[in-house]
Design a protein around this nucleic acid. Structure first.
Length: 750
DNA sequence: GGGCCCGCAGGG
DNA sequence: CCCTGCGGGCCC
């Protein structure tokens, strides 16, 4: 087994030497050491396994098969001690973490503790301790509070964004705490440190939740998935410049306004949560947050706008987090087959997308807002990828002369979401706020303000934002169903290729497409809400959530149903231990005392499973028996070439049945294609890596007429210029000249 | 890091 | 059908 190494004290990966971002690191649950995910031979497969992840050193030691060479005897003892903490079922996860850390930093492990009487107080004390520790280490040196919108200097000191900006604004160039020089870039473009936001928020939540019901339970989940690599089983699809979109996971109609709530989310059953991140626009699209692939505005001029992306495409944009000024689209010269152009060349008007935004302004509709890492001038943009930041209302819109001298449409967006923004450690969402002062309004032309009362508004009684007037009915005929979006025309192999059958969502998609096309299959019935895989020994709670028995056992590992209490000599009545359903707030302690496996459900699943296996076997036959080792780059699951409905001429003959050969050329040094090293004996969750080698991406077979632009001819050869990659491939003799790109088919290449 | 290119998706 | 578009990979 190749040696694997963690990150060193400076945060540098000892394997590749790079300094991974926070989100590219994973912490071992045993020794709390950070590891660079990219350099791991085997990556965790799911969120759950991220939380439960053990580094190669610790797991090697545990397995006892081959002790990792760099773990000394002393370290072995340390790990044993950590294991003891880990095994102590009387400790909360938090307490375990605390003790692990104590151990790592040289303190001695606190012995188990009997879990009895003062548990609650003890816990509260711990939580305060966490807050205290947090406060010590990262108080803003200016206001001496836990930083609001924390920014972190390279020297590792934390400040409120506002305080920091003030400091820098005074011309200071060194860290207020250690006098280390602040790099100019950081000084001018500080970014919110989201890990810190998370840490502060967690500390605050744990403090409040120890007393009462968790208010921000959604945030726990939410923050569970900011890392693009692990957010969802399929969201990680490596984006390709010209790729087709993957399947849409949510069931909202295309013109859905407002937040995407759980009922539209058969996969996670959570909806799209504020703070959800994706690697790119394609993945974001798959969750319905913003459908257009390139366009920054989703909307229809006579209906309203669904969403916008802040991506730095227009220099007039101005981002203040809770509110921002957005620029309309258009006014640019896109000739020469361009999709974007930094240069304005004409005035923008309130038409199409711009008009859609204006309509949403007038009606007071909520607009979903996505921020992209490409927006470099904003403090609030994510470091990587794109992020859903909740809904905003457009309070005013107008036109003005933009920076480049042409008139642009302007929109004042103000946040109005029930969940706090990703950059605050608030526990609550927005309250109605006064409109900001916008100096440029003085020079506004065509100012539009809302006259009627807004459809989406704050309900004082409920203390939350909601539809005060019903949203306009969807006009979108087809709803994107997670299961139904696929047509029967798709080859089974093609679908299967992208799926991982342990995941109930994928499994249900497969079943509902091929085995039970006429049945309504739901995700929930088959998936464990904890492991998200197909239920084994399912238990259905009174609140109608399903879990594997083992997962549920694990969730409440060893907790007692009642607590004995006594003060001094007096015994008090035993107190019920509250055991909340992992999916909602219902107390399951009663139920769990006699929880029974849902035999009927199990039977149903088993028979479905049988059916599935039959289908699969049949298919394996068709596919000439090639399902052995899951080679990361295998092409055998290639798909029927064209499924383009819009292609009226069935020119599939033109799409030669040729697969681009992939001898696993390992790509260029910079980009490891196949991380999965040894395939191992179990199926890898390999869709992240495997489809990734550019040539192997499935692309639409027929290339349509090239784009007919006014002066398209000026762009080059009279006939459509072939893509460079195709050109290169052709040069290598891999692709016949008539076939544009890697066309794939069910057949093996001759 | 800037420029070029182009399949896709959606509006009208 | 035609037009537009705050992408993203790749080459220079």
């Amino acid at each position: 087994m190749a040696t694997q190494l963690p990150c060193d004290g400076d945060g540098k990966c000892m394997k590749c030497g790079k300094k991974p971002l926070e989100e590219e690191k994973i912490l071992c649950k045993m020794c709390v050491a950070p590891w660079h995910v990219e350099c791991l031979l085997t990556r965790p497969e799911s969120m759950e396994s991220v939380v439960q992840w053990e580094c190669p050193d610790c797991s090697d030691l545990a397995g006892g098969e081959s002790a990792a060479p760099m773990v000394s005897g002393a370290a072995g003892e340390l790990i044993a001690a950590i294991r003891a903490i880990e095994a102590d079922s009387t400790l909360s996860e938090q307490e375990k973490a605390r003790r692990r850390q104590q151990l790592m930093s040289g303190g001695s492990a606190v012995s188990g503790g009997g879990g009895g009487a003062e548990e609650r107080e003890e816990k509260a004390k711990d939580d305060n301790e966490i807050l205290a520790i947090l406060g010590e280490n990262m108080k803003c040196s200016f206001c001496m509070q836990l930083p609001d919108r924390p920014v972190t200097t390279p020297c590792g000191h934390n400040f409120c964004l506002k305080c920091f900006e003030k400091w820098v604004g005074q011309g200071k160039k060194t860290c207020a705490k250690c006098r280390e020089l602040i790099p100019a870039k950081m000084a001018s473009q500080p970014r919110i440190n989201s890990s810190l936001v998370f840490a502060i928020r967690m500390a605050r939540t744990s403090k409040t939740t120890s007393v009462d019901a968790p208010r921000v339970i959604q945030y726990v989940h939410n923050e569970d998935l900011p890392d693009t690599a692990f957010t969802t089983e399929r969201a990680v699809r490596a984006g390709k410049a010209n790729a087709k979109s993957g399947r849409i996971f949510v069931t909202i109609p295309h013109d859905h306004l407002g937040p995407i709530t759980p009922e539209y989310d058969p996969v996670r059953k959570m909806g799209v949560l504020v703070g959800d991140c994706w690697e790119d626009r394609l993945a974001c699209r798959q969750w319905g947050a913003h459908f257009p692939h390139v366009s920054g505005i989703a909307g229809q001029s006579d209906y309203g706008a669904q969403s916008v992306v802040l991506s730095g495409g227009y220099e007039d944009d101005e981002d203040h987090g809770e509110w921002f000024l957005y620029t309309g689209s258009g006014g640019r010269d896109l000739s020469g087959n361009k999709r974007t152009n930094k240069q304005q060349s004409s005035d923008q008007k309130f038409t199409s997308a711009n008009q859609a935004l204006r309509l949403s302004c007038k009606k007071g509709y909520p607009v979903r807002v996505i921020r992209s890492h490409k927006e470099k001038r904003s403090n609030y943009a994510p470091e990587t990828g794109v992020r859903y930041d909740g809904v905003y209302r457009i309070e005013k819109c107008w036109r003005k002369k933009g920076i480049q001298g042409f008139v642009v449409c302007r929109y004042l967006f103000v946040r109005c979401d029930n969940s706090p923004a990703p950059w605050t450690s608030d526990e609550r969402g927005d309250r109605p706020r006064a409109l900001p002062d916008v100096p440029e309004l003085k020079k506004a032309i065509d100012l539009t303000e809302r006259k009627e009362s807004p459809h989406w508004d704050f309900d004082e009684k409920e203390g939350s934002w909601k539809w005060k007037k019903p949203p306009p009915p969807s006009r979108s005929a087809k709803e994107k169903g997670a299961g139904k979006a696929r047509s029967r025309k798709d080859s089974k192999a093609k679908i299967l290729k992208g799926l991982f059958m342990n995941w109930a969502a994928d499994w249900v998609l497969y079943l509902s497409t091929f085995c039970f096309p006429n049945e309504e299959l739901h995700f929930a019935e088959f998936s464990c809400l904890l492991c998200r895989k197909v239920l084994t020994l399912p238990i259905t709670t009174p609140c109608a959530h399903n879990f594997c028995k083992s997962c549920l056992d694990g969730a409440f590992g060893g907790q007692k149903f009642v607590r004995e209490r006594h003060t001094g000599g007096r015994f008090l009545r035993t107190q019920k231990n509250v055991m909340k359903c992992p999916a909602c707030t219902m107390d399951l302690s009663e139920f769990l005392q006699n929880a029974q496996v849902n035999r009927e459900l199990m039977g149903a699943i088993e028979s479905l499973m049988r059916k599935f296996e039959e289908e699969q076997k049949a298919m394996d036959g068709d596919e000439e028996e090639n399902s052995g080792a899951p080679a990361p780059n295998d092409d055998e699951y290639a798909a029927a070439a064209s499924e383009d409905e819009e292609n009226t001429m069935s020119d599939s003959e033109e799409t030669e049945s040729k697969s681009v050969k992939s001898e696993n050329e390992t790509g260029k040094p910079g980009k490891p294609n196949t991380v999965n090293g040894d395939g191992g004996d179990k199926l890898e969750h390999s869709n992240t890596e495997n489809g990734d080698g550019g040539d192997k991406m499935e692309l639409s077979a027929a290339t349509k007429r090239g784009r007919k632009r006014k002066n398209a001819a000026a762009s080059g050869a009279g006939e459509r210029t072939r893509g460079r990659k195709a050109q290169r491939a052709a040069d290598e003799g891999d692709v016949s000249p008539s076939s544009p790109l890697s066309v794939r088919s069910d057949n093996e290449p001759e």
